[in-house]
Design a protein around this nucleic acid. Structure first.
Lengths: 260, 260
DNA sequence: GTTTCCATTTCGTCA
DNA sequence: TGACGAAGTGGAAAC
């Protein structure tokens, strides 16, 4: 069939009978689908939901991942993760598309009353994706250039085990004092401060040495700010952006330079 | 223009020049778009990312929400939330679609090398969406029928303020003892146990009365199980599903009966 | 497999 | 609008 060689094959306003055949064939061949139509949606599984009739965009991917998108909003209103079992059945009341997953047991049911268009996809995507300046990369940036946090700081270890978990960075400052660093990618809250305090307490009692606790984050919540003062910890503002820049200079010719 | 009255208007294999005009018109009119094409994507903002060339599905919604989907996986590889500013520009190297948001300042750049199809959407979706048996609804269910947790239990207040936060339910059992209830929609971990223990400690010291702590959840993690015993707390298995059923009986003829 | 924690979390609610 | 917690969170890494 020549059409299947096309990256996209569009069928406009198919009868539900036609749509049934197209969808069955596409899903059996593990092809992606874009369906725009009038439908009702229900879900049963980790929770239960019901979506009354309306026009929606349904994305069915090669791996079975199924998304039901309304005309607005970022999130799909209903969905099914990759690896689910897809079934299509023409009923009296419409064309039923079900996506079932076991473990957890859950089922998505899309009942099409009308279909405006179906796009059968045959896409090729081998492009690499890279994301930077995650919390881990912030650690790397600080490790590469501890001056980001404080002049004279030296990092001894990262993700050091300190009960009851791991402290992000562990170092020694210019006055040879121990420094614990807790990193947050975004606004740090009380939890981060308390976590750091807990680690600090553990370190102080186990080493019998004083230690500084520095919370590194792009910003700090008000309540956390007060806690910082109360617990005599410190806060050092540092954005992921800055870390990405530092990483781009420190590590290698960066992909950042690629981005305009 | 008659075509705009259609729910879906498909343009297959447009020249990039044509695509530019179509996309500009559609976005200016706040219409949704489905674009399938060969593109490169970059993002700068809360983090930075670069996606090399490949075939993708781009969903642009009426509210500006923009999703870049690869042929597999649930999550969009890149996106921009609703309310962003969309711009289209034809360049020598392709058709550039940018979605910019302020606060946080971030930009999504999609450079199309080729476009396989564009679907201009004109969708109508007024259907109500209802999700049930969320954690909040579990609270409601237990409040409506405290026997779900334990016979003779009476609920005094919900979301009661207990430093350092709020305890889900606050009640009195058959022996007139205070009962704190922590609810989790899914498997409860140590964090839930520790949280409950903290509230319990606060209550015990502030009221000088003993109190029971009951963790209500569909399941409990192994480590949390051990903690429960150690801290002399209690665990009561209760599924969101069960809560939904109870709510359906208690509240009104349920939407549950609707499903399936 | 389960547990834990991060996320360009998103999404809701509430002060 | 900001802050805080829940989510059918999803996703990755650790164990």
């Amino acid at each position: 069939m020549q059409r299947s060689l096309e990256r996209v094959t569009v069928i406009e306003k198919p009868l539900l009978e036609q749509a049934e055949a197209i969808i069955k064939k596409s899903t059996s061949e593990h092809r992606g689908l874009l369906i725009v139509g009038l439908c009702e949606v229900s879900y049963r599984g980790r929770a239960s939901s019901k979506l009354e009739a309306g026009d929606r965009i349904i994305v069915v991917k090669e791996d079975g991942a199924t998304l039901v998108h309304r005309p607005t909003d970022y999130s799909p209103v209903n969905w099914q993760p990759p690896g689910c079992l897809l079934e299509t059945r023409l009923q009296k009341d419409g064309l039923l598309l079900t996506a079932v997953r076991r473990r957890p047991r859950e089922a998505l049911r899309i009942l099409f009353r009308r279909i405006y268009s179906i796009s059968v996809l045959n896409l090729v995507d081998r492009g690499d994706f890279s994301l930077f300046a995650s919390e881990e990369e912030m650690r790397d940036a600080i490790k590469a250039d501890p001056n980001l946090v404080e002049d004279g700081l030296r990092i001894i270890s990262i993700e050091k085990k300190v009960e009851p978990g791991f402290v992000d960075l562990y170092g020694i400052d210019g006055q040879r004092r121990l420094v614990l660093i807790e990193i947050k990618r975004k606004t740090a809250g009380k939890d981060a401060v308390l976590q750091l305090a807990k680690y600090l307490e553990t370190i102080r009692s186990s080493t019998n040495r004083d230690a500084r606790g520095i919370l590194v984050a792009p910003d700090i919540a008000k309540g956390a700010q007060a806690l910082i003062a109360t617990l005599k910890l410190e806060f050092k503002p540092l954005s992921p952006r800055r870390c990405a820049e530092v990483l781009s200079r420190t590590k290698t010719a960066s992909i950042l330079d690629y981005l305009r």
